[in-house]
Amino acid sequence: MSLTPLDIHNKEFSRSFRGYNEDEVNEFLDQIIKDYEALIRENKDIQNQLQTTQDRLDHFSNIEETLSKTIIVAQEAADELKTNSKKESQLILKEAEKNADRIINEALTRSRKVALEIEELKKQASIYRTRFRTLLEAQLEILNDESWNTMQLQHKEVE
């Protein structure tokens, strides 16, 4: 158990012959009591400061730990976002490639269909031309035929 200022104050010394001067001893004890009380107060202040400093240190340690965890979580979130973005961009690219292939295939199909239609139209035009030529040739034959000339003469006489 530690010595208190009250213990020092209440301390009684036995008297002996040729002992110390009682007033000097009491003055010295009073001085010790004051110094001891001052040391106790100073020690208490230092302990309070130490506790305050320890509390602040604990607080800052907690903040540091929280920041570290936050940084780790943020990094993980950033990595996950990056991964998801990469996957999404790959999906978009694949979808675009499928659409491009579909558009190209549709264009090729239309192109073949138009080419077939053009060939059909060329055949029909050729048939039409042949028929028209045949018709014209037949009409020219009729015009060049001698009976046409006689028909014209007969027609004039009738008038």
Rank of each mutant, 00 (worst) to 15 (best):
Glu80Tyr: 09
Ile63Ser: 07
Lys69Asp: 14
Leu136His: 01
Arg102Trp: 09
Leu121Asn: 11
Gln139Ala: 10
Ser147Cys: 04
Glu65Asn: 13
Ala74Tyr: 08
Ser126Thr: 05
Ser126Asp: 13
Glu64Gln: 15
Glu146Asp: 07
Ile104Ala: 15
His155Thr: 02
Lys44Phe: 00
Leu29Thr: 08
Trp148Gln: 10
Glu119Asn: 06
Glu27Leu: 07
Asn149Lys: 04
Leu135Arg: 07
Gln54Tyr: 08
Glu119Tyr: 04
Glu12Leu: 14
Lys113Glu: 12
Leu3His: 04
Ile33Val: 08
Arg15Phe: 12
Ile63Val: 13
Glu141Leu: 06
Phe28Arg: 12
Ser2Arg: 09
Glu95Asn: 08
Ile118Glu: 04
Ile46Ser: 02
Gln90Met: 02
Ile33Trp: 01
Glu76Gln: 14
Asp7Met: 03
Phe132His: 03
Ser14Asn: 15
Pro5Ile: 03
Glu95Tyr: 09
Leu121Ile: 05
Ile103Ala: 15
Asp55Gln: 07
Glu141Ser: 04
Thr66Pro: 00
Gln139Lys: 08
Glu24Pro: 04
Glu22Pro: 08
Glu141Thr: 07
Ala107Leu: 12
Glu22Ala: 12
Arg56Met: 13
Asp55Pro: 02
Leu91Pro: 03
Thr70Ser: 06
Glu146Leu: 05
Asp55Lys: 01
Asn21Ala: 01
Arg41Pro: 05
Thr52Gly: 01
Ile103Gln: 12
Asp55Thr: 03
Ile8Cys: 00
Ile142Ser: 00
Glu27Ser: 08
Leu67Trp: 03
Leu67Arg: 13
Val73Cys: 06
Ser68His: 12
Ser111Met: 05
Ser61Leu: 14
Val73His: 13
Asp35Ser: 12
Glu141Trp: 02
Ala107Met: 09
Asn99Ala: 06
Lys156Phe: 05
Thr83Trp: 00
Tyr128Gln: 09
Leu93Thr: 12
Leu29Cys: 12
Glu95Arg: 14
Leu81Ala: 14
Gln139His: 15
Thr109Val: 10
Ala38Thr: 12
Asn10Gly: 04
Gln31Glu: 15
Thr83Phe: 02
Asp30Pro: 00
Glu120Asn: 07
Asp58Glu: 06
Tyr36Ser: 01
Leu143Ile: 00
Thr130Val: 11
Gln75Tyr: 05
Lys11Ile: 03
Ile92Lys: 12
Trp148Ala: 06
Glu42Val: 07
Ser2Ile: 10
Gln154Gly: 04
Phe17Ala: 15
Ile104Gln: 10
Ile71Pro: 03
Glu27Asn: 14
Pro5Gly: 00
Ile32Thr: 10
Met1Ser: 05
Leu3Trp: 05
Gln49Trp: 10
Asn105Trp: 03
Asn26Thr: 14
Ile8Ser: 07
Gln49Met: 06
